[in-house]
Design a protein around this nucleic acid. Structure first.
Lengths: 352, 352
DNA sequence: TTGAAAGCGATACCAA
DNA sequence: TTGGTATCGCTTTCAA
């Protein structure tokens, strides 16, 4: 309710001085500043973000764009970003696409983002060429978390490496017949396809590096969903094809696979080993071995870089954050450890 | 980049007319309006929220306060609220307390919320008397989701009923020795304690209504966490106390209990039946019978009511949304269906 | 139906 | 170090 004029009057100074004092800028004597600070607090004065935004041209807010907010990865990144932004006195304006593709068009086309924030933090969004141009034209500092986009700085893990670590783990245990459950092909939303592509690549690279023949490289599509992975796994098992090891591109899909295996009477890890990627909380509940990433820190880091950009045009580069291998009990050496490279496909045949 | 003056010039009218036309207000001829709309789109004009906010006094944004954003319930409610707000052309400013209690003080004390939004949507927050006074003084329309607060309208399920339904389900199956795993006592954050209290009450009411003696009413503290529930359940089993049925105040705690039971070699539902409350995605993965709520719709409804309030001071009342009983395979009649009311405590003794 | 002009509350420049 | 004042872009009132 109180505005800057009230504070100025109470302190016996001009609004200009109050503004300087509150913004922590120089050219205010210590005594004056202290008095102003005290009075402002007493009066419960909070600057109008509209007024200051209008005059100064910046909103002290950041627009965060997410495909959806109700997902472990997205919400954890946002939580991390929020922590960092809040510390810097910035607000977070959330834009959830929520499966509504029109929303996305509007967001970019009408350059709404720039009106609400001094920067944009986008999660797993695959910017089109036009969208990138828009952002560049608006001179809006931009950061991406989850999947690199040409020309935009980002924070993320080495997706390729993560999947490779998971695959190598099974290879080292002695598995040779390793199935990959891939993500991607999600509903409508134009998510960044590089995440699923690179994870698949990591699996393939590891298999080839281990000398596995091309025909040993096989996968099913789990669409980053436990339910879909479960269904596809069911079909595969129905067809009589039982790998000794499974690498899922996400923990949720790994859980879907475990459920399908259990339903067929197969035990994990005795009959089949399963390893995931992500470090999703559900992994612990299923005692799933996984390659964990830390989305909270990614959000935090991205927000920090964005703030640097907004402030001083720092030219830091994209950041790759490390992953951590988390061994649990869903993986073990294959039952028939003698299985050679030439008979892997048939070595694990069984009846459910 | 284009501002209202550009549009006005292009259309050959005054900025006043442009403003009226774009806001969809009367006193603009159809032809003029159409021309303005077309030109505004062509120029990619988006009104400055700062300027319009400053002049009109409202921000066309809503402040959403959450204890954390990285949790199923919170993020789902926010997703629902976002969908509704977006439809109405409102932005969502997210304030996550993120376990930082100082954050909360600041938020309310400095009446920051009112500066950023035309209304406040708070999740599971237990407003203090002072905080309520603050909001009332600011004349900020407020809605709560998750736990009623005296004097503030809210959207939520009947927590009591939800737990009662879960309990009655076990009672109807013939269980008599039913343990309750309660939530509450969470870390620092002053979450609304009524959710856990009322769920506990629902359990107790159902037990009493079924004629169970007071000593049959027993519970352990799971703090709304799978890990804690699991640990407490372990201790209980260690002590040799094995109920035939368990009602958990949340699905996550129910899963924790299932894990502890499994670790002791107890089967669900053959040895022990477990039922949860929430309808959390993890429930399906564990085939957990539960009483489901729909947080997305709650968020949507709350946002709708808040918008009504902001617009026209509608005096709608708080809303109770229904829950849905979702039977799965974690519950079954007790093994020893003959167990009478007098020997329930010992009827299910066993060795793991 | 339309336009002219006065502000909304802060900031930033320039002068003192 | 301080104060006066123009100004940010829009909405709104009042007059035409």
């Amino acid at each position: 309710m109180a505005d800057i004029t009230d504070v100025a009057r109470a302190a016996g100074v001009s609004t200009a001085t109050v503004s300087r004092a509150l913004a922590g800028r120089p050219h205010v004597s210590a005594a004056t500043r202290e008095r102003i600070l005290r009075l402002a607090a007493e009066l419960g004065y909070v600057p109008s973000s509209s007024a200051s935004g209008l005059r100064s041209g910046h909103t002290r807010a950041v627009a965060v764009v997410v495909p959806r907010i109700d997902g472990w990865f997205y919400s954890s990144v946002v939580e991390g970003a929020d922590a960092e932004l809040r510390r810097a006195g910035y607000d977070l304006v959330l834009f959830s696409l929520g499966g509504r593709d029109g929303e996305r068009e509007r967001l970019f086309h009408e350059s709404i983002l720039g009106k609400r924030g001094d920067g944009v933090l986008a999660l797993c969004i695959d910017f089109s060429r036009g969208e990138r141009a828009q952002l560049a034209e608006l001179r809006l500092p931009t950061m991406i978390v989850g999947g690199p986009v040409r020309g935009v700085r980002y924070v993320g893990i080495d997706e390729n490496e993560a999947a490779a670590i998971a695959t190598e783990h099974l290879l080292e245990l002695g598995h040779t017949d390793i199935l990959f459950i891939e993500g991607g092909a999600e509903i409508g939303q134009r998510l960044n396809p590089r995440v699923s592509k690179e994870r698949r690549q990591g699996y393939e690279n590891a298999m080839r590096a281990a000398g596995r023949p091309e025909e040993a490289i096989r996968s099913i599509q789990g669409e980053f969903s436990a339910a879909v992975a479960r269904a596809r796994m069911h079909e595969l098992l129905e067809a009589g094809s039982v790998p000794t090891g499974i690498v899922a591109a996400s923990d949720e899909m790994a859980v879907g696979a475990i459920l399908a295996l259990r339903a067929r009477g197969l035990r994990v890890p005795e009959d089949v080993s399963v390893v995931g990627v992500d470090g999703h909380p559900v992994a612990e509940l299923f005692s799933l071995t996984t390659v964990a990433q830390d989305p909270f820190t990614q959000g935090r880091t991205a927000a920090r870089m964005l703030l640097d950009d907004i402030g001083a045009r720092s030219s830091r580069r994209s950041v790759r954050v490390p992953v951590e291998f988390v061994p649990r009990t869903s993986t073990a050496p294959p039952r028939d450890s003698r299985s050679s490279a030439t008979e892997d496909r048939s070595s694990s045949s069984m009846t459910a």
